Amino acid sequence: MNKRARQLILGCLVPVLILLGMCFKPVYTLLTGEVIKLQTKPVDPTDLFRGDYVALRYEAEDVPIQFVEEAVVSKLGNSWGEIEVYVLFEEKNGVHIPLKVTLRKPAKGIFLKGTLILYDKTNSGKEFVLIKYGLEKYYVKDNTGTEWEKASEKGKIVAKIKVNNGYGIITGIEREK
């Protein structure tokens, strides 16, 4: 094989390898991850161009301040910047709830990597942080979006998520019983 043919083969292989590398983490998570369930909260999706989907908001996004490590609170300080955090979960009554928010990746347990985007207080004075996990949309079969939206408005959807090493993928949604 001459030098020109090797360069052509290498030139074709590089983009293919890059695309395969982009698929590795999601596929590996789907194959080896642990399934957790997160309770959703009502939300109103309003995008006509993306097909039928359910916009999801999770109860686990609003974490009371007592579950947040002091290092996270001190790093947040008075800034409004986003902070990368890890949220350790425990199962309670069939769904997973936050147990601890930390800056360091937990050595064991089920956890999701998220972005702390807000520190606030409720009207009653309770402090909490808002964490986004990147799991806000789930696409559903055509012509079923309306019924899922109605269930979402009532907060009656539980999302099934495969989690591996802090990375999560929504594998399905179900109506709460």
Rank of each mutant, 00 (worst) to 15 (best):
L20K: 10
L20E: 10
M22K: 14
P26M: 10
P26V: 14
T29S: 01
T29G: 00
L30N: 06
T32C: 08
E34W: 04
L38G: 04
L38T: 07
T40N: 12
T40F: 07
V43W: 06
T46M: 09
D47R: 07
D47M: 07
F49P: 00
F49G: 13
F49L: 10
R50P: 00
G51V: 08
D52L: 03
Y53L: 11
Y53V: 04
V54L: 11
A55N: 08
A55Q: 14
L56N: 08
L56K: 09
R57I: 08
R57S: 14
Y58W: 04
Y58G: 05
Y58E: 05
A60F: 03
A60V: 00
A60H: 02
P64L: 13
I65L: 15
I65Q: 13
F67D: 14
E70V: 06
E70F: 05
E70M: 07
V73R: 11
K75N: 07
L76F: 08
G77C: 01
S79C: 07
W80M: 09
G81T: 11
E82V: 04
V85Q: 11
V85R: 11
Y86H: 05
L88S: 09
F89T: 01
E91L: 06
N93L: 09
V95W: 02
V95A: 02
H96M: 02
I97H: 05
K100W: 05
V101H: 03
R104H: 10
G109V: 06
G109K: 08
G109C: 04
I110W: 02
K113C: 02
T115N: 09
T115A: 09
L116I: 02
L116D: 00
I117K: 08
L118V: 03
Y119D: 06
Y119F: 10
N123W: 11
G125L: 11
E127H: 10
V129R: 00
I131P: 02
I131Y: 03
I131R: 05
Y133S: 10
E136G: 10
K137S: 05
Y138E: 07
Y138W: 12
Y139K: 04
K141D: 12
N143V: 11
T144Q: 03
T144S: 03
G145M: 03
E147D: 09
S152L: 13
E153Q: 14
E153N: 12
K154R: 15
K156G: 03
I157K: 06
I157R: 10
V158S: 00
V158Y: 00
A159S: 12
A159N: 03
N164A: 14
